[in-house]
């Protein structure tokens, strides 16, 4: 996956692009954690508009990123999740743990 990102007004927006599966998951999580670690933003928004597919690997990626971000005392939210990934996240109950925003225009 390609990880696009922007930092504006204290919000780091991470925008992964492509399909997420076990093949790329840990590398992608590592790169996103590194961006958070370097920039230490007060807010991190994971914008999933360009991720049409994930399998259960995405569950571990979201939880890993959530733990890193909140571990720094920053806030974490997920936005623009497409239907297939949302179904996978809901199967694991992530909608009860993480903050999913319906539509965020950036």
């Amino acid at each position: 996956m390609k990880i696009n990102y922007t930092l504006t007004g204290g919000i780091l927006i991470l925008k992964p692009e492509g399909e997420l599966d076990h093949h790329c998951a840990m590398e992608d999580l590592g790169r996103m954690k590194e961006l958070v670690d370097v920039m230490l933003p007060p807010n991190v928004l994971l914008d999933l508009r360009d991720m049409p597919f994930t399998d259960s690997s995405g569950i571990a990626v979201l939880m890993g990123l959530y733990r890193t971000v909140t571990g720094f005392g920053s806030r974490f939210a997920v936005a623009n999740t497409r239907p297939q990934p949302m179904k996978v996240f809901k199967a694991a109950g992530l909608d009860r743990i993480l903050s999913f925003k319906e539509e965020v225009h950036i």
């Binding site: 998951a25 179904k87 996978v88 199967a91 694991a92």
Partner: peptide, 15 residues
Amino acid sequence: GAERSGMGFTIMESF
């Protein structure tokens, strides 16, 4: 381990 969610069979079953 932490890389995996343990949801594989559950997802196969429900999907």
